[in-house]
Design a protein around this nucleic acid. Structure first.
Lengths: 349, 349
DNA sequence: TTGTATGCGTTATCAA
DNA sequence: TTGATAACGCATACAA
């Protein structure tokens, strides 16, 4: 079919090339322009150093002149590597994840990676589907607050590098901030204020993080000799927080931890709407320190999580797994911190 | 090199296949299992209908049994199509973009596309770089509040489908909400409250949207016979809003529009910190209706933009350009709406 | 150091 | 309707 143009030409592209006008330039074009073999171009462009300085320069100039850009798919085929990593968040509606996304996106961009985003809407089912799909086209996967089972996560991690945020699963890279610092400070603060009973409005049942937070609070309260009770809830959202108000009012606790800021804000507003004064009659604390948590009146006291750093850290963990020769980076110390604003106050007599 | 195992076998994969244990299954594996040619498998799996019902079924069953998943890169090579579309936002820090991201992500997931995300940090330079990079690996590109020049955008649109949000550029698909509805209502409301001079704290200089909003406000004020003045600002952020406070206090306007809610919130808080009562002494209005804009005291009155819908609409515009035979979907009417909360009140004195 | 040849997993073009 | 085979653009053993 295609007439060989000469002995040197391995492959004749003339047909397509001459007809189509705006084809993206390939290494073949560069090779022709630079007077070298395509494979040399490939070498020069992918891993510099394996080609003489002179030809390197010639090739780079040709590439620049042609506005050459590597075809990611063509590269991905033989190597299996794309330059993108996936991020699946449990609920793209929660501002807490925005910070995680930011952190990951920023870190990715800095290392010349791009981010693929997906949302599981708190559904384990959808999460698994999304994860499988993504796994096929990314170099690694970050799961933020996954609802999957440990086994499922470990299974995913078998195929590609995986990092999870806000959860611990044996054998897979985890990024989870130390709850202890923030929680102890918070409980100590509450005790100093005279509170003797604390309640925790829990998050989703399958949430490892909610469990983790509760255990930490409970342990700390026990240590301080005060009572701690667990309150179930529906959704970890503003509305979920609102709906938790009845259970809160039914109980006798005078200080309330909420699973996250979203719930704390909902609870705060619902309580206020019912005429209850915060913090005069009831103290409220959230977790995360999301955008807007200081907009309320009173501004929300909360246990700040290093969300942005977590996103960045997770991405770096992926990259480490990718580069075999990567220096084993020490884990950044991710610690929570008590942010005292106006929603906590002295217990009233 | 590779011994042909038989006349039917076009390609011998035995070497790799037997050694590597966990290779992803390919259409060759399916073909073998189903007793047909790989090309038939391809046909059956890509565009159903071009193969007999019987073989179709056999192939699908084999695919399911093998847990087959198409290799996106291999598919992208001949077709040029990946199933992902890119989204570049001007500032991933601004909650307004979160809603856009959500809208786009949701719409994408529904059509079985995935989203690639990038942030330009309000820099035209970075935006262009990101856009070029993305363009190479996506089917289409959404630019949210681009800082690029018209020419640059048109240039990008030449290569792949592009849709822009919050801006109009000749020849490229644009998604921009009608300002008029919200703004007229707002001005009318302010006039009814007795205000006779209004100021607009502008956004970034190169922002088409800021210009658009100002022109709409100005026209509306002229029509109503009240004065409107333009105030420059630095950043379209909470801090930028805070810094705009001095200019606001120096002026004589009694009602202030801010380019976006972020600035409005910053301005509100700075003013309050200086002892100025809102809305008693000064009325404040934002644009967008972002998450948290109702958390302030007083809650922010704002002109709500259909952010979520805009993101979704932009994605659909891309898909329409992609499918030549797609029905020319009528543009959804995206209109702004005045959301009255507590930050606007009667003019004093 | 550079060139040759081949494979990566699909789709697409022809024949049959 | 199905089979054979050539691209798609790049990377990489191997040879020179």
């Amino acid at each position: 079919m295609s007439e060989t143009t000469g002995p040197k030409e391995t492959r004749a592209r003339s047909t397509k090339r001459t007809s189509g006008k705006n084809q993206a330039p390939t290494i073949y074009d560069i090779a022709e322009m630079a007077g070298v073999n395509p494979s040399t171009v490939s070498r020069a462009l992918s891993k510099p150093g394996r080609v003489s300085a002179k030809t390197q320069k010639v090739i780079e100039e040709a590439a620049k002149e042609l506005h050459y850009q590597v075809n990611m798919f063509a590269r991905a085929l033989p190597t299996g590597r794309t330059q993108t990593i996936g991020l699946i968040v449990a609920d793209i509606t929660n501002p807490a994840y925005f910070d995680i996304i930011r952190g990951a996106e920023t870190a990715a961009a800095a290392r010349d990676y791009t981010l693929m985003l997906a949302d599981s809407t708190e559904s384990a089912q959808l999460e698994l589907t999304a994860a499988r799909r993504m796994l096929a086209s990314v170099d690694g996967l970050i799961l933020a607050s996954p609802r999957l089972s440990d086994a499922e996560i470990q299974d995913l991690a078998l195929k590609k590098p995986v990092a999870i945020i806000n959860r611990n699963v044996a054998g897979v890279a985890s990024v989870v901030a130390q709850m202890n610092a923030g929680v102890s400070d918070a409980v100590r603060h509450l005790v100093a204020l005279g509170h003797t009973e604390i309640a925790y409005v829990a998050g989703p049942e399958r949430s490892w993080m909610s469990q983790n937070r509760w255990e930490c609070i409970n342990a700390r309260c026990e240590w301080s000799g005060i009572k701690a009770t667990l309150l179930d809830s529906e959704d970890p959202t503003v509305d979920g927080g609102r709906r938790a108000a009845v259970a809160v009012r039914a109980g006798s606790a005078t200080a309330i931890f909420c699973y996250n800021d979203l719930m704390a804000i909902g609870l705060l507003r619902e309580l206020q709407a019912a005429g209850i004064k915060v913090p005069a009659e009831l103290s409220i604390l959230g977790f995360d320190n999301i955008f807007g948590s200081d907009f309320t009146t009173p501004p929300l006291s909360t246990i700040k999580s290093p969300l942005h750093e977590s996103g960045a850290a997770a991405l770096l963990r992926i990259l480490d797994q990718l580069d075999a020769e990567a220096p084993v980076r020490p884990d950044p110390t991710l610690r929570t911190e008590l942010v005292l604003r106006g929603s906590t106050g002295a217990k009233i007599g």
